[in-house]
Computed example of a mutant assay.
Amino acid sequence: MKQSASRGVKLVALLATTAIVAGCALPRSGPTRSEILAGAEQTVGAPFIVAVDDRIARTTSVEPKLTFPAAFRNIGLLGPDTINAGDTLGLTIYENVNDGLLAGTGQNMAVLETVQVDGQGFIFVPYAGRIRAAGNTPEALRQLITAQLETQTPDPQVQVRRIAGDGAAVAIMGDVGGQGVYPIERPTRTLAGMLARAGGISTEPETALVTVIRGATEGTAWLNDLYTDPSLDIPLRDGDRIVVKQDERTFVALGATGGQARVPFGKPEVTALDAIAQAGGLNTNLADPKGIFVMRNERAEIANAVLGRSDLVGDQRMVYVLDLTQPNGMFFAREFLIRDRDTVYVTQAPYVQWQKTLSALTGPLSTANTVNNTLN
Results as ranks from 00 to 15, higher is better:
Met1Leu: 09
Gln3His: 12
Gln3Met: 12
Leu11Gly: 01
Leu15Thr: 12
Thr18Gly: 07
Ala22Thr: 07
Pro27Tyr: 08
Glu35Phe: 00
Gln42Ala: 10
Val44Gly: 15
Phe48Ile: 06
Val52Glu: 03
Asp54Tyr: 05
Arg58Ile: 12
Thr59Lys: 15
Pro64Tyr: 08
Pro64Ile: 02
Lys65Asp: 12
Phe68Leu: 06
Arg73Gly: 11
Leu77His: 03
Gly79Trp: 01
Gly79Thr: 01
Ile83Gln: 03
Ala85Ile: 07
Asp87Asn: 10
Thr92Cys: 02
Tyr94Arg: 10
Asp99Met: 03
Asp99His: 00
Thr105Cys: 04
Thr105Tyr: 12
Ala110Gln: 03
Ala110Lys: 07
Leu112Tyr: 08
Val115Met: 04
Gly119Val: 01
Gln120Cys: 05
Phe124Lys: 11
Val125Tyr: 14
Val125Pro: 12
Gly135Ile: 00
Thr137Glu: 14
Thr137Gly: 11
Ala147Phe: 13
Glu150Tyr: 04
Gln152Cys: 02
Thr153Phe: 03
Gln157Cys: 09
Gln159Thr: 09
Ile163Met: 06
Ala164Phe: 05
Asp166Gln: 06
Ala169Met: 02
Val170Asp: 08
Ile172Ser: 02
Ile172His: 02
Gly174Ala: 10
Asp175Leu: 09
Gly177Gln: 06
Gly178Ser: 07
Glu185Tyr: 12
Glu185Ala: 15
Ala192Gly: 06
Gly193Asn: 13
Leu195Lys: 01
Arg197Tyr: 09
Arg197Val: 04
Gly199Met: 14
Gly199Thr: 12
Ser202Cys: 05
Thr207Glu: 11
Thr207Gln: 14
Glu218Pro: 12
Glu218Ser: 13
Gly219Arg: 03
Trp222Cys: 05
Trp222Val: 04
Trp222Gln: 07
Leu226Tyr: 10
Thr228Gly: 06
Pro230Trp: 11
Ser231Leu: 09
Arg237Ser: 07
Gly239Phe: 00
Ile242Arg: 00
Ile242Asp: 03
Glu248Leu: 12
Gly255Tyr: 08
Gly255His: 10
Gly255Asp: 04
Thr257Tyr: 14
Thr257Lys: 12
Thr257Gly: 12
Gly258Ile: 01
Gln260Pro: 15
Arg262Gly: 06
Val263Pro: 14
Phe265Arg: 03
Gly266Tyr: 01
Gly266Phe: 07
Leu273Met: 10
Ala275Gly: 07
Ile276Glu: 01
Gln278Glu: 00
Gly280Thr: 01
Gly281Ser: 07
Leu286Phe: 15
Asp288Arg: 06
Phe293Ser: 10
Arg296Gln: 00
Asn297Thr: 03
Ala300Trp: 13
Ala305Thr: 02
Val306Thr: 04
Ser310Lys: 15
Gly314Arg: 12
Arg317Met: 06
Arg317Pro: 11
Val321His: 07
Leu324Asp: 01
Pro327Cys: 05
Arg334Thr: 15
Glu335Thr: 15
Glu335Gln: 15
Ile338Ala: 06
Arg341Ile: 05
Gln348Trp: 04
Val352Lys: 02
Trp354Arg: 02
Lys356Glu: 00
Pro364Cys: 11
Asn369Arg: 15
Val371Arg: 09
